[in-house]
Design a protein around this nucleic acid. Structure first.
Lengths: 246, 246
DNA sequence: AGGAAAAGTTAACCTGGATCAAGACGATTA
DNA sequence: TAATCGTCTTGATCCAGGTTAACTTTTCCT
């Protein structure tokens, strides 16, 4: 099922089987998209939203010089532009980072859910608020952490989210991002990201290769990035899988 | 009416008179709070949300050394912790910046709205997404702007939001923030904020005194902060009031 | 297999903002 | 009126991360 990973293991929003089925039915089409492809441009009027099934997507804003600031990286299970349903147009672009599979849900189907299944509608709301919580963690990262801390924090977050999606064992995960991407995420230059990666490697905290991230010391990495996963609203039953990994 | 400023002049979410009345009824209590007072602590289980009627509130996360990173500054009309309704607990603290008047809305009343007035419920959802859009603008600010740009961008944003709230004429507005607050917003030190303010003054862009902000050259200030108000989703009918101010 | 393009690596140098320190100013309270 | 505390102001010094530029490695294409 394409919706299998959506809202998995989040506190207080267990999706009922019927609800998941209903979402599944709402999918109009499943599409495969190549890497580095823009899916939505800021200002476009939207009539559908995108659930990420496989691969990585991002959301970003360009600055005047053409440099991007990423505002979100999406992992499988994320309802990437669900906020486009109430907002109708977005304030940013959406693009693939890697090749990806996406499920398209028309807004008419969401309207129907809203009318007929208020409980499920509330869970959709919740999902968008989770994204906002992640935005806030990113604000903390950019405003208060140094370069090593930023990268460490981001890798901890991504690891945690991928554990929930069943795509990381808590130590290693496949990831197709370049150092340049990491720079756009952390508000750094690619050159400096390279130095940070070396430092993380030399301190035996983690390894970052394009296509594979390996966390050598989860505890110390989290410490270095002041990472506290509370903002991910992970259900207690699943929290253990994350915590006991060193 | 306490809800007068809520969702005013936003694109595609005109609140009907009946809807506003309904929200007004949902208010359980109106409270006056002194400056620099914490209202919600991260992790608290919430059973009510706060609509800001007067004054300024903020949301923030503390770092390990006790320095705060603000994630939001709220102006009158903002439903400050509406996201606490679906989420139940928050990932950050909420506090007053200045003395403030707040209206308390119990979650039971919101539940009732959700069941009985799905259109209004959708508008509440929208309001929380507006906050998320502002988070993203803040991410852009921290990730891509230099110190002068950050302060310029923040002042443009605040001015625009206060114009919508009827609390700025587009040029000057009362604001009770210190330079220290500005530092916590922009990810800078108070010392450097002081220098930035001087630079903005010397370039005749704007004046920042505690208790009064005066924008001398809106166009150039926006330019300096790469400020584009699209992310505030201002209705076309109200957009003019902002644009034609130089 | 070979060649081009993208991604990663490293060094040298520079600068924006942090840090530290000292005072000035302005409100509030006694 | 003085005393006190928070806020603002300014200067001196330092360093994290930016910039530029060269070079290497990997990936992808035909």
């Amino acid at each position: 099922m394409f919706t299998d990973r959506f809202l998995r293991d989040r506190r207080g929003v267990r999706l009922e089987t019927a609800e998941r089925a209903r979402l599944e039915e709402a999918i109009e089409e499943v599409r495969v998209v190549e890497a580095r492809k823009r899916l939505v441009r800021a200002g476009d009027v939207l009539s559908e939203s995108t659930l990420l099934v496989e691969g990585f997507l991002c959301r970003y804003i360009d600055d005047r010089r053409g440099l991007r600031q990423l505002m979100a990286v999406h992992v499988p299970g994320d309802f990437v532009d669900l906020h486009g349903f109430p907002l109708k147009t977005l304030d940013h672009d959406v693009a693939t980072l890697t090749a990806a599979t996406v499920a398209i849900v028309p807004h008419t189907a969401l309207q129907q859910i809203e009318r007929e299944a208020p409980d499920l509608a509330r869970k959709l709301w919740y999902a968008t608020l989770l994204d906002a919580a992640i935005h806030r963690a990113w604000l903390f990262r950019l405003g208060r952490l140094d370069s090593i801390g930023r990268v460490a924090h981001f890798l901890c977050e991504t690891n945690a989210r991928l554990v929930l999606a069943g795509l990381s064992d808590g130590r290693r995960f496949a990831f197709g991002l370049t150092q340049y991407d990491l720079a756009e995420i952390c508000g750094l230059t690619n050159v400096h990201v390279n130095r940070v990666i070396r430092a993380l490697r030399e301190e035996r905290l983690c390894l970052f290769r394009s296509s594979l991230v390996e966390i050598l010391d989860p505890r110390r990495l989290a410490e270095r990035g002041q990472f506290d996963p509370t903002y991910l609203y992970i259900d207690d039953s699943a929290a253990g899988a994350l915590a006991a990994k060193d």
